[in-house]
Every structure is written in structure tokens, then in C-alpha cells.
Amino acid sequence: MSRGKLLKQGSLVMEDNKPWALISEVGGQGYIEEVTDIMKQHFQIICLKDFLQNPLLHGPKIQAMFVWNALPAPKPALLSSLPSLRVVANGGVGIDHLDVSYITSLGVKVTNTPGVVSDATADIAMGLLLASARNIVEGHQIAVNPNTTHKQCRMGVEVTGSTLGIIGMGHIGSKIAQRGKGFDMKILYHNRSRRTVEDEQAVGASYHDNMDDLLKASDFVMLAVDLTPETTGLISHRELSLMKPTATLVNISRGLVVDQDALVKALQSGTIRAAALDVTHPEPLPRDHPLLGLPNVLITPHVGTNTYTTTRRMVQRMVENAVAALKGQTIPNEVKPK
């Protein structure tokens, strides 16, 4: 047998020896085709629909689960069919859809991908802020409408020199502050703990221990917190009433951070000027939800990390975390139960 065939044969053996990983799907709500090659370098992958056709056959083989857009949902029924599972690798920072305590009680590691998503998420945050402030979507619709004969767009509000209040000054919040500084915005922030003086000086940010003070002073309130029991419903009737009537609420965290019924009333009554949301609850909203019919609301379908560059980085980090877990190495981004 030639050396080439031996190498080929060897590569096939290596392919057969790769650990199995369960993924949601390729295309649709799953992974774009361009990133599956990253997973296939280290794993034999199987899609959820194929797995469900014969879970008794495939279940014992699977050692890793890659969770993307909260799919496959690692519920107890699914986890019980994966006796060899050792790691659940989540794509993205938020892990509110994962029962970390339960999963880890099974001896399974949980990981996420902080850091690699921060720039893309901060970009969409500023994109939403700018688009809402300057009525960009409305302007586009007017410009392309065949019935348009003259400018009809509403006046916007100034971004440069305005006050940006960031609630949640983690890695993403800090990136948003950097971008706000580029627009000469005055940066206020509220966080569970104060950042270092060096961090504050880098973006010219002022700390507000009392969130109410930040709400009263901000022209734009940016939500960049994790979803936890403490942040669920963080912004409701009282908090919205503290904001300026000219202020805009921007949410790139999770839909449940905002009381949506309270937000609808605040937008309808003029309590606040506008809202720009990359997240809602549920996603997508029911087609008859009142938020969808308000002219002072801008909504995108949770696309904060949707760039080719960030998607590849996320999948690469998911794979690195999973490989480390299976090899018993230090996991770059392990999530511990609280």
C-alpha cells in the first residue's frame, strides 16, 4: 500500500475516533455552513433532527453539545439520553437558558464565549442608538416609497454631546462606552461594582451607585446586563417614569430585563421618546404585539453577534472550550453554578 493510502487510511481512523457532538442544525436557526468546518476538525457532528430519529443509537456516543440560539435546548429529557455527555458549550455570553446547576450536577461542564462577542454587540448597540435618534429606518422607508414627493421625515435628536447612561459595565458595556466617547458623549454608568479609576478614565465614564440618578440624567439609557433574578424586570413603570421625556431606551441584553407592558405604556404616553431593541420576550414577538405597531420603536431580531467574523470566533471558542473539557485541561470559559 502506498504512503498516500496509508495516510488516507490513517486520516479515516482519526475521523472515526473523533468525539461526537450534538448540534442544532446547519442553516435555518442553526449554524451557517461556513463554520461547520471548525467543528469538524475536532468532532463528528450530528444534527438534532438526525439524533432524534434514533436517540438510543446515537445518545451513548455524544460527549459534547454545542448550544446555538438556545438550541438544542439541554432539558432533562434530552440530557438523560446522553449518558456520555461531558460538556455543554454555549455560543454567546448569556446562559439564562441553561440550568447550570442541574447540568453541572450531572458531572457535565458548561462553557460560554465572552469577549469574542463584545465588539459586534457594542456595534449593534450604537447602530440601534443612532438609527433611533436619527429616524434612519423611517427615512429609508420614505426615500424608497414610490408615493414620496418631498421630505417628510420627523426631526431627530442629537447624539454628539448627549449623555449616555450604561446599565451593566462589563466587557460589552465598556466597549459601548468606548464608542460613545467617539461621539463626544458624556458617559454615565451603573454596575454591581465600580470599575477601576483607569477603566473610568479610559472612556471618561462617571459611576452612579444609584441607578435612579443615572436614569434621570441620561438622554440614552443602554441596557447591557446579564439576565438574572435581580435584573429580571429591572426597567418597569417606576424606572421609565424617571427618564427624560426626550430619552431613548436601548436594550441589547435580554427581553425580560424590561417590563414590556410598562414600556408600551411609556412609549404611547410620551413618558419617553423612543425605544430601540435587539431583544424582546418572546423572540419573535406575537405579530399582534403592540410594540410592533408603535412608530417610536425600532426592533431588530437579536442580531447583536450576527457577523461572519464574530460567528467564526464564537464557534472557534466553543470548540476550544469543548476540547479542553474532554481532555481534562483548563477550560478557557467555564461557567460555574452560582
Rank of each mutant, 00 (worst) to 15 (best):
residue 2 S to K: 11
residue 9 Q to T: 15
residue 9 Q to Y: 13
residue 10 G to T: 12
residue 21 A to P: 09
residue 23 I to L: 00
residue 28 G to R: 00
residue 29 Q to R: 13
residue 29 Q to P: 13
residue 30 G to M: 00
residue 31 Y to Q: 00
residue 32 I to N: 07
residue 34 E to L: 05
residue 37 D to P: 09
residue 42 H to M: 06
residue 43 F to L: 08
residue 48 L to G: 02
residue 50 D to W: 04
residue 52 L to V: 10
residue 53 Q to L: 07
residue 53 Q to A: 12
residue 58 H to Y: 15
residue 61 K to E: 07
residue 62 I to N: 00
residue 64 A to Q: 06
residue 66 F to A: 03
residue 67 V to P: 05
residue 67 V to L: 04
residue 68 W to C: 06
residue 71 L to V: 14
residue 71 L to D: 14
residue 71 L to R: 15
residue 72 P to L: 07
residue 78 L to G: 15
residue 89 A to E: 05
residue 92 G to T: 12
residue 95 I to F: 15
residue 98 L to I: 15
residue 99 D to W: 07
residue 102 Y to V: 10
residue 104 T to E: 02
residue 108 V to R: 01
residue 110 V to R: 01
residue 110 V to Q: 01
residue 111 T to D: 00
residue 116 V to M: 00
residue 116 V to N: 00
residue 117 V to L: 04
residue 119 D to E: 14
residue 121 T to P: 03
residue 122 A to G: 13
residue 124 I to R: 01
residue 125 A to G: 11
residue 127 G to F: 04
residue 128 L to V: 11
residue 133 A to M: 02
residue 135 N to M: 06
residue 140 H to I: 12
residue 141 Q to M: 07
residue 142 I to M: 06
residue 142 I to V: 13
residue 146 P to M: 01
residue 146 P to Y: 03
residue 147 N to V: 11
residue 148 T to M: 03
residue 148 T to I: 05
residue 148 T to V: 06
residue 154 R to L: 14
residue 156 G to K: 02
residue 157 V to N: 03
residue 164 L to S: 10
residue 168 G to T: 10
residue 174 S to A: 14
residue 181 K to S: 11
residue 181 K to F: 09
residue 191 N to R: 02
residue 194 R to P: 09
residue 196 T to C: 00
residue 198 E to Y: 11
residue 198 E to H: 11
residue 199 D to N: 09
residue 204 G to M: 03
residue 204 G to Y: 03
residue 210 N to C: 09
residue 212 D to G: 12
residue 213 D to L: 08
residue 215 L to W: 06
residue 218 S to H: 07
residue 225 V to W: 01
residue 228 T to A: 06
residue 228 T to I: 08
residue 232 T to Y: 08
residue 233 G to H: 03
residue 238 R to P: 10
residue 239 E to H: 09
residue 241 S to T: 14
residue 244 K to W: 07
residue 246 T to R: 01
residue 247 A to H: 07
residue 249 L to I: 12
residue 250 V to N: 05
residue 257 V to Q: 03
residue 257 V to C: 06
residue 258 V to M: 01
residue 260 Q to D: 05
residue 262 A to I: 12
residue 263 L to C: 10
residue 269 S to Q: 10
residue 269 S to G: 14
residue 270 G to Y: 06
residue 273 R to P: 05
residue 278 D to I: 05
residue 279 V to T: 05
residue 286 P to R: 02
residue 296 N to S: 08
residue 297 V to A: 04
residue 305 T to P: 04
residue 305 T to D: 03
residue 306 N to I: 06
residue 307 T to L: 02
residue 308 Y to K: 15
residue 310 T to W: 02
residue 315 V to C: 05
residue 317 R to G: 07
residue 317 R to S: 11
residue 319 V to D: 06
residue 320 E to W: 13
residue 321 N to L: 03
residue 324 A to V: 14
residue 325 A to E: 01
residue 326 L to A: 09
